[in-house]
Nucleic acid binder design. Structure first.
Length: 506
RNA sequence: GAUCGCUUAGCUCAGCUGGUAGAGCAACGCCCUUUUAAGGCGUGGGUCCUGGGUUCGAGCCCCAGAGCGAUCACCA
């Protein structure tokens, strides 16, 4: 098949061929030993010290300033960039100057991956650099990378900013925009910190099925697939809640999983069809205990990532320092609207919602109305992490009824930067009540609610054997990562966000 | 799903009331040769997202479509 190549791509292929003709393998197999990273050298080199007398490092050639028999260039490794100084007669000590005159000056291109050996010194202008004694090509780049330069005022020129380019070709985005790399490193640090926090407390990290014949644990439309050998429909999980609780039935005191979940719904700045949720279930605890744990864990996570509990997000500074504010849902609504809805019936709630200019329709029940009022009137005010507790029972078919408050369940969410970042309950462990809640969901399903839960007989069977009182939580890892990295879109915290398939232009 | 916006060189972007395509960086060549976004001179590079239409003439106007984005709806 004919491929259209740009002028620059053709030139690079010609350079590749010239290198091959000179008997050099542009894609060698051998290990290249690396003694230091660019960052280590820049952070630790002291003028006049004998340290770094001999270093080897490898990376991409990112700029090249050739001046006859001496040149400066920059290489970028996984830690950052460092300047190198290449002198013709030092890398070509004999009569043959081909390596410098031909290969280094002509046939190497920006983006090529090279290995160098030399010693560290400081130039007249005060830049820590590597004086190169030997240079080897490790991999040729035949497609030009966008060249990003930062000028003296710190202004960035020609950074790749087209979102489609960034997300489809994340490998280029990562190479060219250093802050993208640091976002993803923070994401991993965050997950590692959470894992350590929970493992240190003795909770067991587990894996549960992604292909489920009955999907459950959340209200959402699933992706459906088919197993050929069994000739059976399967769903990609929308949550793993019911499986983790089966493990609590089985006798584990604490289990957690970082789970990829899948929901067949709209995409937005805050929604990707596949996303990561961390769910944790701990036996013999309730939601009050879980609130304390959540605060402690996230405060710890912020400290691990940023070295402080204060995190800048957009124009706000968010403080994760304990304790966080706690509101019941009714208190929050009264606080932001001045209206006490705690004793209202459905008709009064509907009137109240209308008076607040909230779009209502006849299918909305009590729980939905309360949720809408909260969502419209309160959520956007909640920038600092805030616990919202005690939700209407209709919205929470897996949560235990409140110990004292009629019509409510023991549930909390944390709202932070105006978005929900977790959802937790005192888990419903009464199999009789759970069956009734599932049946109510089936009714909703019959009335056309596509997100109503399915009745899971096996889960009920597990509860019938007896599940200890349990507290459970699900934390939206992508949402939390957005806050911890000051990202505006979920796509910025996913290496490969979901996109429509690229059309083949050839 | 609805509305609005964007799509021009490898990258970032200009392009007027419709007159046949521009800059910076990158590339190529020469000069300079310890530079700091190195500099100077020169050269090449375009399916102006795609397909139709209007027009003597379309990057620009009209229609249809694609991709991306924003807002809304949906998503507790």
């Amino acid at each position: 098949m004919e491929r259209h190549l740009s002028e620059q791509e053709i030139i690079r292929r010609e350079n590749l061929n010239k290198i091959i003709e000179m008997g050099i393998n542009p894609f060698p197999n051998e290990t290249f030993e690396i003694s230091h990273s660019a960052k280590e050298i820049i952070e630790n080199f002291k003028e006049g010290s004998e340290d770094f007398g001999s270093v080897q490092l490898a990376g991409r050639l990112m700029s090249q300033r050739v001046m006859g028999k001496a040149s400066f260039a920059e290489i970028q490794d996984s830690s950052g960039r460092i300047q190198i100084y290449v002198n013709r007669d030092e890398i070509c000590p004999g009569e043959n100057k081909t390596l410098y005159n031909q290969i280094f000056k002509k046939n190497l291109d920006l983006g090529d991956i090279i290995g160098i050996k030399g010693h560290v010194f400081i130039t007249q202008t005060g830049t820590i650099s590597i004086h190169v004694k030997a240079l080897v090509l490790l991999s040729k780049s035949v497609k030009p990378l966008p060249v990003v330069k930062t000028d003296a005022e710190g202004k960035v020129h020609d950074g790749v900013s087209d979102p489609e380019f960034k997300y489809r070709q994340r490998y280029v985005d990562l190479t060219v925009n250093p802050e993208v790399r640091s976002t993803f490193i923070k994401r991993t640090k965050m997950i590692n910190a959470m894992r350590k926090f929970m493992t240190d407390r003795g909770y067991l990290e587990v894996e549960t099925p992604i292909l489920q014949s009955i999907y459950g644990g959340a209200a959402a439309r699933p992706f459906k697939t088919h197993h050929n050998a069994l000739d059976t429909a399967f769903y990609l999980r929308i949550a793993n809640e019911l499986y983790l609780k089966r493990l609590i039935v089985g006798g584990f005191d604490g289990v957690f999983e970082f789970a990829k979940d899948f929901r067949n719904e709209g995409m937005s700045r805050f929604h990707n069809p596949e996303f990561t949720m961390m769910e944790l279930y701990v036996a013999y605890k309730d939601y009050n205990w879980m609130m304390d744990l959540m605060e402690e864990m996230i405060e710890y996570v912020a400290q691990e990532i940023h070295g402080t509990t204060k995190v800048k997000v957009g124009d706000n500074i968010i403080s994760f320092k304990r304790p966080w504010k706690r509101f019941t849902m009714f208190e929050a609504i009264e606080h932001y609207t001045g209206i006490d809805i705690s004793n209202m019936d459905e008709a009064e709630l509907r009137t109240t919602a209308k008076s607040l200019k909230i779009h209502v329709d006849d299918t909305m029940g009590k729980g939905k109305l309360i949720d809408e009022i909260f969502g419209e009137q309160c959520e956007h005010h909640l920038i600092q992490p805030t616990f919202i507790t005690d939700y209407p029972v209709e919205m929470s078919p897996l949560a235990k009824k409140h110990r004292t408050k009629e019509g409510l369940v023991e549930r909390f969410e944390v709202i932070c930067n105006a978005k929900e970042i977790c959802n937790a309950f005192t888990e419903l462990n009464d199999p009789i009540d759970q069956r009734k809640r599932f049946e109510d969901q089936l009714e909703l399903g019959k009335r056309g609610d596509e997100e109503a839960m399915q009745l899971d007989e096996d889960y009920l069977r597990a509860l019938e054997y007896g599940m200890p009182p349990t507290a459970g939580i699900g934390i939206g890892i992508d949402r939390l990562a957005m806050i911890m990295t000051n990202a505006e879109s979920i796509q910025d915290v996913l290496f490969f966000p979901q996109m429509k398939p690229e059309k083949n232009k050839d």
